[in-house]
C-alpha cells in the first residue's frame, strides 16, 4: 500500500497549476496510482472552481466581446481526445510502460554504472534535474545526503532504505537532514527529481561524490 504522498500544500499547488513541470509530472504520476490523492485532487479542483466562479466581479460594462466571440466560433474543428499507446522502454532486458504524463517528454540515452542506470528527462526546469533511475535487484545507491532536496517516486519494483521499504506510487521527498542508502529489494524503476547533486557521506563513498551528479 502507498504510504508516502505529496503534502497537501504540493497537491493544492498542483491543482492550481502553480508547480513547475517536473514536479507537476511527478504529482500527476503519483495521483494516477493513488486513489486517495485522486479523490483529494477532485475535491481541491471543485473548491478552486468555486472560488473562481464565485467572484462576483463587475462585468466591465461596455467591454465588447462580440468580435472575439465571432472569431472563436468560426472554428469548426472539434477537439479529439486520442488515448495514445503507452510508451514502452527497455532497460537491461526489462520492459516498462511509462506513465502517460511522460509520453511527450524527451529521454536521454541511458548512462550505466554497475547496477544503476539513469536517463535524463528533458523537462528544461533549470537546475532541477529529472531522471528515470533503474536499479537492478540488489543494487544500491551509496549512503548520501541531499544538499537541496530529492524526490523519488517509485514507478515499479521495490526498494528499502534505513527508514522504510517502499512500493510503487510512494512519493518520497527528502532534504539535507536525511541521510539514506536505498537498496533495491527487486529491480526497480524510479522517477527522481533533485535540485542539487547528492552528497555521499560515508567512508570511501565520499570518493564517489562526483557520481552523485551523474545519478541524479
Amino acid at each position: 500500500m502507498i504510504k508516502y504522498h505529496p503534502s497537501e500544500h504540493i497537491l493544492q499547488s498542483y491543482v492550481q497549476g502553480e508547480l513547475c513541470a517536473s514536479l507537476s509530472v511527478a504529482v500527476s504520476m503519483h495521483v494516477a496510482m493513488c486513489p486517495q490523492c485522486q479523490h483529494l485532487t477532485c475535491q481541491y479542483e471543485a473548491s478552486c472552481a468555486q472560488s473562481f466562479a464565485g467572484e462576483n466581479l463587475d462585468l466591465h460594462g461596455d467591454e465588447n466581446w462580440d468580435e472575439l466571440i465571432a472569431q472563436i466560433t468560426e472554428d469548426t474543428m472539434l477537439a479529439e481526445i486520442a488515448a495514445p499507446a503507452p510508451l514502452e522502454i527497455e532497460i537491461k532486458g526489462e520492459q516498462f510502460l511509462l506513465p502517460s504524463s511522460l509520453q511527450n517528454v524527451g529521454l536521454s540515452g541511458w548512462l550505466k554504472l554497475g547496477k544503476l542506470s539513469r536517463s535524463r528527462l528533458n523537462l528544461g526546469d533549470g537546475k532541477l534535474h529529472a531522471s528515470l533511475l533503474h536499479i537492478e535487484k540488489g543494487g544500491s545507491v551509496p549512503q548520501h545526503t541531499h544538499r537541496g532536496f530529492e524526490l523519488t517516486l517509485l514507478l515499479s519494483g521495490t526498494f528499502k532504505d534505513e527508514m522504510d521499504s517502499y512500493v510503487p506510487g510512494d512519493f518520497i521527498m527528502l532534504d539535507g537532514s536525511h541521510e539514506h542508502s536505498p537498496v533495491a529489494t527487486e529491480s526497480c524503476l524510479c522517477f527522481t527529481l533533485a535540485d542539487d547533486a547528492l552528497h555521499f557521506s560515508q567512508g570511501l563513498s565520499q570518493l564517489f561524490n562526483p557520481i552523485g551528479k551523474l545519478i541524479y
Binding site: K3, P6, S13, M173
Partner: peptide, 16 residues
C-alpha cells in the same frame, strides 16, 4: 514550492 518534510498518509489534509 518545495516541501521539505516527509508526508505520511495519516494526515487528513481536507479540513485545512
Amino acid at each position: 514550492m518545495i516541501e521539505k518534510s516527509r508526508q505520511q498518509s495519516t494526515e487528513t489534509p481536507q479540513g485545512s
